Computed example of a mutant assay.
Amino acid sequence: MRFLGLQPNAHACNCNSFLSCLLMNGDIQKAFIVLFFMRKKENVTEHMYSLMLKAVAEVKGCDSALRMFRELEREPNYKSSFDVVLYNTAISLCGRINNVYETERIWRVMKGDGQIGTEITYSLLVSIFVRCGRSELALDAYDEIVNNKI
């Protein structure tokens, strides 16, 4: 973690573990209570949001999870801490339902926020764009891979 420059917060790490346990046991309501508590304390991690988006997608579907993601995007306090993993989660959800328009929007927003994709990001993008018949976007994503030396 030190090598990557990550500064783990013990309280947030414990809450991530607690949240994971609640979600594994299917208790999404209590997981939301933990999330709201952490938001109130301004101690939310992107990992918490990723966990919650995946859980919402499982319980209520990908469209609901993507609505939750868009709501998070509208909150400047939280959006400023979005990382590439959270964007990957949202892009992955788009791919599950072949929502090419939302995939492209999230990719553009991610780049606009100064985030550089990972191998996972570009693998998701290329797969979704090709599957949805948007080869030009797949080639744009591939060009980005080359330009970013990924």
Results as ranks from 00 to 15, higher is better:
51 L>D: 06
111 K>S: 11
137 L>F: 12
65 A>S: 05
43 N>Y: 05
135 S>K: 11
126 V>G: 09
129 F>W: 00
104 E>A: 10
49 Y>A: 01
134 R>M: 12
120 I>W: 10
122 Y>K: 07
61 G>H: 08
54 K>S: 15
135 S>V: 15
83 D>Y: 02
115 Q>C: 14
59 V>E: 08
127 S>D: 15
76 P>Q: 07
95 G>K: 06
100 V>P: 07
45 T>A: 04
119 E>L: 14
55 A>F: 00
102 E>P: 06
56 V>Q: 07
52 M>Y: 03
124 L>E: 08
71 E>P: 05
106 I>M: 05
134 R>K: 14
42 E>V: 02
101 Y>V: 10
116 I>N: 13
93 L>Q: 11
117 G>Q: 01
139 L>C: 01
130 V>S: 01
40 K>M: 02
127 S>N: 15
54 K>F: 10
114 G>S: 04
48 M>R: 00
42 E>P: 01
128 I>N: 11
99 N>I: 00
102 E>M: 12
76 P>K: 03
54 K>V: 12
51 L>V: 04
138 A>C: 05
102 E>T: 04
125 L>T: 00
115 Q>W: 12
132 C>H: 05
89 T>P: 04
119 E>I: 13
136 E>A: 04
83 D>S: 03
102 E>C: 07
73 E>Q: 12
86 L>Y: 04
109 V>E: 12
41 K>S: 00
95 G>A: 05
60 K>F: 14
41 K>V: 03
54 K>M: 11
86 L>K: 07
127 S>F: 13
70 R>Y: 12
105 R>W: 06
112 G>Y: 08
49 Y>T: 00
138 A>F: 03
133 G>C: 03
